[in-house]
Protein backbone atom coordinates (compact mmCIF):
# COMPACT_ATOMS: atom_id res chain seq x y z
CA UNK A 1 0.00 0.00 0.00
CA UNK A 2 1.49 3.33 -1.05
CA UNK A 3 1.56 6.27 1.33
CA UNK A 4 -0.66 9.24 0.56
CA UNK A 5 1.19 12.29 -0.79
CA UNK A 6 -1.74 14.66 -0.82
CA UNK A 7 -5.20 14.47 0.63
CA UNK A 8 -7.81 17.20 0.45
CA UNK A 9 -11.09 16.99 2.34
CA UNK A 10 -13.92 19.35 1.39
CA UNK A 11 -11.38 21.94 0.38
CA UNK A 12 -13.00 25.27 -0.39
CA UNK A 13 -11.55 28.72 -1.14
CA UNK A 14 -13.21 32.12 -1.06
CA UNK A 15 -11.41 35.27 -2.15
CA UNK A 16 -13.14 38.54 -1.30
CA UNK A 17 -16.36 36.63 -0.61
CA UNK A 18 -16.35 34.98 -4.05
CA UNK A 19 -16.21 31.19 -4.12
CA UNK A 20 -13.24 30.01 -6.19
CA UNK A 21 -13.11 26.34 -5.14
CA UNK A 22 -15.88 24.16 -3.66
CA UNK A 23 -15.78 20.83 -1.85
CA UNK A 24 -12.66 19.38 -3.37
CA UNK A 25 -11.78 15.80 -2.42
CA UNK A 26 -8.56 14.45 -3.88
CA UNK A 27 -6.27 11.64 -2.79
CA UNK A 28 -2.92 11.28 -4.54
CA UNK A 29 -0.64 8.32 -3.71
CA UNK A 30 3.07 8.86 -3.28
CA UNK A 31 5.39 9.01 -6.32
CA UNK A 32 2.62 9.69 -8.78
CA UNK A 33 1.85 12.59 -11.10
CA UNK A 34 -1.52 14.27 -10.90
CA UNK A 35 -2.54 16.50 -13.80
CA UNK A 36 -5.10 19.16 -12.93
CA UNK A 37 -6.99 20.15 -16.06
CA UNK A 38 -9.72 22.62 -16.74
CA UNK A 39 -10.55 25.74 -18.71
CA UNK A 40 -9.21 29.17 -17.70
CA UNK A 41 -10.71 30.44 -14.46
CA UNK A 42 -11.69 26.98 -13.20
CA UNK A 43 -9.54 27.36 -10.05
CA UNK A 44 -6.49 25.28 -11.03
CA UNK A 45 -3.88 27.77 -9.87
CA UNK A 46 -5.86 28.51 -6.72
CA UNK A 47 -5.81 24.81 -5.87
CA UNK A 48 -1.99 24.75 -5.98
CA UNK A 49 -1.79 27.90 -3.87
CA UNK A 50 -4.19 26.43 -1.35
CA UNK A 51 -2.01 23.33 -1.00
CA UNK A 52 1.21 25.20 -0.12
CA UNK A 53 -0.64 28.00 1.72
CA UNK A 54 0.59 30.67 -0.67
CA UNK A 55 -2.99 31.93 -0.43
CA UNK A 56 -2.10 33.16 3.08
CA UNK A 57 -0.36 36.08 1.37
CA UNK A 58 -3.57 37.06 -0.44
CA UNK A 59 -5.73 39.47 1.57
CA UNK A 60 -9.41 38.61 2.22
CA UNK A 61 -8.91 34.94 1.39
CA UNK A 62 -10.68 32.18 3.34
CA UNK A 63 -9.80 28.50 3.09
CA UNK A 64 -12.08 25.79 4.48
CA UNK A 65 -11.68 22.01 4.71
CA UNK A 66 -8.46 20.07 5.15
CA UNK A 67 -5.21 19.67 3.25
CA UNK A 68 -2.86 16.89 4.34
CA UNK A 69 0.62 16.60 2.80
CA UNK A 70 2.48 13.41 3.73
CA UNK A 71 0.58 13.19 6.98
CA UNK A 72 1.10 16.87 7.82
CA UNK A 73 -2.14 18.80 8.27
CA UNK A 74 -1.21 21.95 6.33
CA UNK A 75 -3.64 24.36 7.94
CA UNK A 76 -2.82 23.42 11.51
CA UNK A 77 0.96 23.65 11.07
CA UNK A 78 3.43 26.42 10.41
CA UNK A 79 2.90 27.75 6.85
CA UNK A 80 6.66 28.12 6.32
CA UNK A 81 7.14 24.44 7.15
CA UNK A 82 4.36 23.51 4.70
CA UNK A 83 6.04 25.51 1.94
CA UNK A 84 9.40 23.87 2.62
CA UNK A 85 7.68 20.51 2.24
CA UNK A 86 6.38 21.53 -1.19
CA UNK A 87 8.18 23.08 -4.13
CA UNK A 88 6.53 25.33 -6.68
CA UNK A 89 7.17 26.27 -10.29
CA UNK A 90 5.20 29.13 -11.82
CA UNK A 91 3.57 29.75 -15.16
CA UNK A 92 6.02 32.44 -16.24
CA UNK A 93 9.69 31.60 -15.54
CA UNK A 94 10.72 33.77 -12.57
CA UNK A 95 14.31 33.08 -11.52
CA UNK A 96 15.48 35.76 -9.06
CA UNK A 97 17.03 38.41 -11.34
CA UNK A 98 19.35 39.72 -8.61
CA UNK A 99 21.17 36.41 -8.15
CA UNK A 100 23.44 34.22 -10.25
CA UNK A 101 22.31 30.87 -11.64
CA UNK A 102 24.11 29.15 -8.77
CA UNK A 103 22.60 31.39 -6.09
CA UNK A 104 19.10 30.91 -7.47
CA UNK A 105 19.37 27.24 -6.59
CA UNK A 106 21.46 27.72 -3.45
CA UNK A 107 19.35 30.38 -1.74
CA UNK A 108 16.56 28.03 -0.66
CA UNK A 109 18.73 25.54 1.24
CA UNK A 110 20.93 28.40 2.51
CA UNK A 111 18.15 30.52 4.02
CA UNK A 112 16.39 27.48 5.40
CA UNK A 113 19.60 26.21 6.99
CA UNK A 114 19.54 22.84 5.25
CA UNK A 115 23.27 22.57 4.56
CA UNK A 116 26.32 22.48 6.81
CA UNK A 117 29.08 23.71 4.53
CA UNK A 118 29.99 24.91 1.07
CA UNK A 119 30.75 21.46 -0.30
CA UNK A 120 27.40 20.09 0.71
CA UNK A 121 25.74 23.12 -0.89
CA UNK A 122 27.73 22.65 -4.12
CA UNK A 123 26.65 19.01 -4.27
CA UNK A 124 23.02 19.91 -3.64
CA UNK A 125 23.03 22.62 -6.34
CA UNK A 126 24.56 20.20 -8.80
CA UNK A 127 22.07 17.48 -7.89
CA UNK A 128 19.11 19.86 -8.35
CA UNK A 129 20.39 21.16 -11.68
CA UNK A 130 20.96 17.60 -12.90
CA UNK A 131 17.48 16.51 -11.88
CA UNK A 132 16.09 19.55 -13.75
CA UNK A 133 18.15 18.51 -16.80
CA UNK A 134 19.98 21.81 -16.87
CA UNK A 135 23.41 20.95 -15.42
CA UNK A 136 25.18 20.25 -18.72
CA UNK A 137 24.05 23.56 -20.16
CA UNK A 138 25.05 25.76 -17.21
CA UNK A 139 27.97 24.01 -15.45
CA UNK A 140 30.46 26.38 -17.10
CA UNK A 141 28.54 29.55 -16.27
CA UNK A 142 27.06 29.17 -12.81
CA UNK A 143 28.02 32.77 -12.00
CA UNK A 144 26.02 34.25 -14.89
CA UNK A 145 22.79 36.12 -14.22
CA UNK A 146 19.68 34.12 -15.18
CA UNK A 147 18.52 36.53 -17.89
CA UNK A 148 21.29 35.16 -20.09
CA UNK A 149 19.41 31.84 -20.25
CA UNK A 150 16.60 31.14 -22.70
CA UNK A 151 13.03 31.09 -21.39
CA UNK A 152 12.95 27.30 -21.30
CA UNK A 153 16.28 27.12 -19.48
CA UNK A 154 15.02 29.69 -17.00
CA UNK A 155 12.00 27.51 -16.32
CA UNK A 156 14.25 24.49 -15.68
CA UNK A 157 16.31 26.70 -13.36
CA UNK A 158 13.10 27.42 -11.44
CA UNK A 159 12.47 23.69 -11.25
CA UNK A 160 15.99 23.18 -9.86
CA UNK A 161 15.41 26.00 -7.36
CA UNK A 162 12.30 24.22 -6.09
CA UNK A 163 14.03 20.82 -6.02
CA UNK A 164 16.96 22.10 -3.98
CA UNK A 165 14.74 22.08 -0.87
CA UNK A 166 14.17 18.36 -1.50
CA UNK A 167 10.39 18.75 -1.39
CA UNK A 168 8.05 15.79 -0.98
CA UNK A 169 5.47 17.35 -3.24
CA UNK A 170 6.10 19.45 -6.32
CA UNK A 171 3.48 21.93 -7.52
CA UNK A 172 3.73 23.14 -11.10
CA UNK A 173 1.48 25.84 -12.51
CA UNK A 174 1.42 25.37 -16.30
CA UNK A 175 5.21 25.14 -16.36
CA UNK A 176 5.40 24.62 -20.10
CA UNK A 177 2.86 27.24 -21.18
CA UNK A 178 5.58 29.78 -21.93
CA UNK A 179 8.37 27.61 -23.30
CA UNK A 180 9.17 26.09 -26.69
CA UNK A 181 8.30 22.42 -27.48
CA UNK A 182 11.87 21.12 -27.04
CA UNK A 183 12.17 22.65 -23.58
CA UNK A 184 8.64 21.48 -22.76
CA UNK A 185 9.66 17.92 -23.64
CA UNK A 186 12.76 18.21 -21.43
CA UNK A 187 10.66 19.41 -18.51
CA UNK A 188 8.19 16.56 -18.99
CA UNK A 189 11.05 14.07 -19.12
CA UNK A 190 12.55 15.56 -15.96
CA UNK A 191 9.22 15.24 -14.13
CA UNK A 192 8.72 11.64 -15.21
CA UNK A 193 12.20 10.67 -14.04
CA UNK A 194 11.68 12.49 -10.73
CA UNK A 195 8.74 10.36 -9.67
CA UNK A 196 10.50 7.23 -10.87
CA UNK A 197 13.78 7.83 -9.04
CA UNK A 198 13.00 10.10 -6.09
CA UNK A 199 10.64 10.16 -3.12
CA UNK A 200 8.57 12.85 -4.76
CA UNK A 201 5.01 13.38 -6.00
CA UNK A 202 3.87 15.98 -8.49
CA UNK A 203 0.76 18.06 -9.10
CA UNK A 204 0.80 19.58 -12.51
CA UNK A 205 -1.65 22.19 -13.80
CA UNK A 206 -2.29 22.24 -17.51
CA UNK A 207 -5.01 23.35 -19.84
CA UNK A 208 -4.04 21.01 -22.62
CA UNK A 209 -5.57 17.52 -22.32
CA UNK A 210 -2.80 16.01 -24.47
CA UNK A 211 -0.10 16.95 -22.01
CA UNK A 212 -2.20 15.63 -19.12
CA UNK A 213 -2.66 12.27 -20.86
CA UNK A 214 0.99 12.06 -21.83
CA UNK A 215 2.64 12.34 -18.44
CA UNK A 216 0.13 11.90 -15.63
CA UNK A 217 -0.97 8.89 -13.58
CA UNK A 218 -4.04 10.65 -12.21
CA UNK A 219 -6.23 13.36 -13.63
CA UNK A 220 -8.44 15.89 -11.90
CA UNK A 221 -10.84 17.85 -14.06
CA UNK A 222 -11.95 21.17 -12.59
CA UNK A 223 -14.82 23.23 -13.91
CA UNK A 224 -16.00 26.52 -12.36
CA UNK A 225 -14.36 25.68 -9.04
CA UNK A 226 -15.76 22.18 -8.77
CA UNK A 227 -14.07 18.84 -9.18
CA UNK A 228 -16.01 17.24 -12.01
CA UNK A 229 -13.98 14.09 -12.26
CA UNK A 230 -10.95 12.56 -10.56
CA UNK A 231 -9.29 9.22 -11.23
CA UNK A 232 -6.63 7.23 -13.04
CA UNK A 233 -5.54 8.90 -16.26
CA UNK A 234 -6.01 5.78 -18.35
CA UNK A 235 -9.55 5.23 -17.15
CA UNK A 236 -10.58 8.83 -17.72
CA UNK A 237 -8.93 8.95 -21.13
CA UNK A 238 -10.75 5.83 -22.29
CA UNK A 239 -13.99 6.26 -20.49
CA UNK A 240 -14.82 9.64 -18.99
CA UNK A 241 -17.84 9.35 -16.72
CA UNK A 242 -18.99 12.90 -17.03
CA UNK A 243 -20.29 14.64 -20.13
CA UNK A 244 -18.26 17.80 -19.38
CA UNK A 245 -15.01 15.81 -19.20
CA UNK A 246 -15.81 14.13 -22.49
CA UNK A 247 -16.38 17.50 -24.12
CA UNK A 248 -13.22 19.01 -22.58
CA UNK A 249 -11.10 16.12 -23.86
CA UNK A 250 -12.51 16.70 -27.33
CA UNK A 251 -11.62 20.37 -27.06
CA UNK A 252 -15.20 21.64 -26.93
CA UNK A 253 -15.19 23.35 -23.51
Amino acid sequence: MRKVALLTENLGVKIGGKEILRNLNIELPERRILAVMGPSGSGKSTLLRAVNRLLDTVPSCEVSGRVVIHGVDAYSSDPYKVRRLTGMVFQVPNPFPNMSIYDNVAIGPKLNGLVKDRRELDDLVRWALERAMLWDEVRERLKDPPHKLSGGQQQRLCLARALALRPKLLLLDEPTANVDPINAAKIEEALRSLVETQEISIIFVTHTPHQAMRISDYVAFLYMGELVEFGLTQEIALNPKHELTRRFLKGEV
Partner: peptide, 11 residues
Protein backbone atom coordinates in the same frame (compact mmCIF):
# COMPACT_ATOMS: atom_id res chain seq x y z
CA UNK B 1 5.90 36.80 -8.88
CA UNK B 2 9.39 37.02 -7.28
CA UNK B 3 7.90 37.47 -3.84
CA UNK B 4 5.59 34.50 -4.45
CA UNK B 5 8.61 32.44 -5.48
CA UNK B 6 10.32 33.48 -2.25
CA UNK B 7 7.35 32.48 -0.11
CA UNK B 8 7.04 29.19 -1.98
CA UNK B 9 10.60 28.39 -0.87
CA UNK B 10 9.57 28.74 2.75
CA UNK B 11 11.17 32.16 3.30
Amino acid sequence: TYKEAGYSLGF
